[in-house]
Design a protein around this nucleic acid. Structure first.
Lengths: 98, 98
DNA sequence: AATTAATTGACTAAATTTGGCAAGCCAAAA
DNA sequence: TTTTGGCTTGCCAAATTTAGTCAATTAATT
């Protein structure tokens, strides 16, 4: 179960390039990118999109990975997490049906 | 599909009491409670718990309603919302299985 | 019309997030 | 064993978001 940080670290290592190169493309400090790859910090939406470009990957797939991380981390300490997701899904379905 | 704000407004109206009475119990301005009931502002976790007490309701049910609102609003503008939820669920399941 | 409740908008305060910098760590090369 | 280069860590500052109040307005109720 790969999270967003792991995904972009894997892609970077596959390419065999350094943090600093990607960081410069994103116009952020490499220390920050290091934190993002390790999941210590969350990327911003714009950065996710830029990363998808950088790695020639699908933007929506990146966004899905990133957003699902966010939700999972919101709910990780909730004992009823799965239940909450179900209710959220119903709410979204409902809203879309109107 | 009742959201958190609607739920606590309904409960208050059933009891036939005023915003100010509930607001005073929560130690916030009634204007803020009005906004929370109408979904213009989000309650804090502690307030949700206090509200469950106030209305003799189940705390977990209140938290589920409130958190699922939060998630639904995070995803409402995402075209892949349902997909994202699925992935988030897998991530949570996975984390729990470790 | 007078009271009282609820809403709204504008503004402030508090909290959270995002980011940079500098120092430190560690492995590999010299 | 020293140096080099990449990555990580901790700490502080800036920026953004969110929670909150207050005062004015609107809507009901009597």
């Amino acid at each position: 179960m790969e999270n967003f940080g792991e995904k972009i670290r894997r892609l970077r290592e596959d390419k065999g390039i350094y943090l600093r190169q990607v960081a410069s493309f994103l116009e952020i400090d490499q220390a920050l990118l290091s934190k993002i790859e390790r999941g210590e910090r969350k990327a911003k939406r714009e950065q996710v999109i830029k990363l998808a470009k950088f790695y020639n990957s699908d933007k929506d797939e990146f966004l899905t990975s990133w957003l699902s991380d966010k939700i999972a981390s919101d709910l990780n300490s909730e004992k009823n997490a799965i239940d909450i997701l179900k209710v959220a899904e119903e709410k979204i379905q409902y809203k879309r049906s109107t």
